[in-house]
Design a protein around this nucleic acid. Structure first.
Lengths: 133, 133
DNA sequence: ACTTACTATTACGTTAACGTAAGCTCAAGT
DNA sequence: ACTTGAGCTTACGTTAACGTAATAGTAAGT
């Protein structure tokens, strides 16, 4: 059923627009664990998905150490549920943090809007918008 | 009218929960320019506001160099409007970026929700929720 | 006069997240 | 046989954003 197509390191580097070094570094840090065929790395769809999560995490400002925690949590959630309560706590912590970040972003966006309209006003005034019908 | 209350470096450090070193570093980088009384730094409300913006920028994952750009834009917007069109372009760029970031955050929040409900299910099953009325 | 509390400057140290260069392997094409 | 291309390891270099002394001035309290 699952043909399990495999990717080379360059495939992923191209797809996600990152360097080979970055991918190797992530492996070195234990964030991904590609198979080996001889010395060459081979990546599954699962590796690809993890890489995607890693990069998304980076974009919202998480450190690799934090991303590793989260990836571990995914694993944990897959395997057992013995520590699920602890996991829930961690998740809600993370949620709070993210919601704060979103508020920050919203605040910045609002300020940008204000700045923008200021600019427009100034430009309109200077180009004499209401003086030229 | 404006009594222009002044703040010491420790005031701001306490208020924003950062170190003295951090504040001095920001000055060193030209992000703030407190007055001096002798050697001692004295901060106005304006410095305070800038600091607040800096920290907010950091929280949403901007580099100090980018924050400086933005602060400069604020200045620019205050003074002249000659380059306002350029400014508008920069602002809309920044907006796009921020909106992407927000989408990332939303995606992560959604995933967390799913993980959470998975956890709850598992816990319910293990504690035999529907077996004990 | 002495200590305590802030503040300052100078300068080397640190951590994260890769960049970059050197040198080697191995399969494929010409 | 030779070169090109992709991949590998090892290892030193780099940048940002502060941390962490070490040392010193200075005003206020006792």
């Amino acid at each position: 059923m699952s043909e399990e197509r495999l990717f080379t390191i360059s495939d992923l580097a191209r797809d996600f627009d990152i360097t080979l070094r970055t991918i190797r570094f992530y492996e070195e840090q234990g964030l991904i664990e590609p198979q080996r065929e001889g010395r060459q790395r081979l990546f599954t769809h699962r590796d690809r998905a993890r890489l995607k999560l890693i990069l998304r995490g980076k974009r919202i400002g998480l450190a690799l150490s934090e991303i590793r925690e989260i990836l571990d949590l995914y694993e944990l959630a897959r395997d057992e549920a013995s520590q699920s309560l602890k996991l829930l706590q961690l998740l809600s912590d993370r949620k709070l943090q993210l919601e704060e970040q979103r508020q920050d972003i919203d605040a910045v966006l609002a300020e940008i809007d204000i700045l923008e309209s200021h600019c427009r006003q100034v430009i309109d005034t200077m180009t004499g918008k209401d003086a030229t019908p």
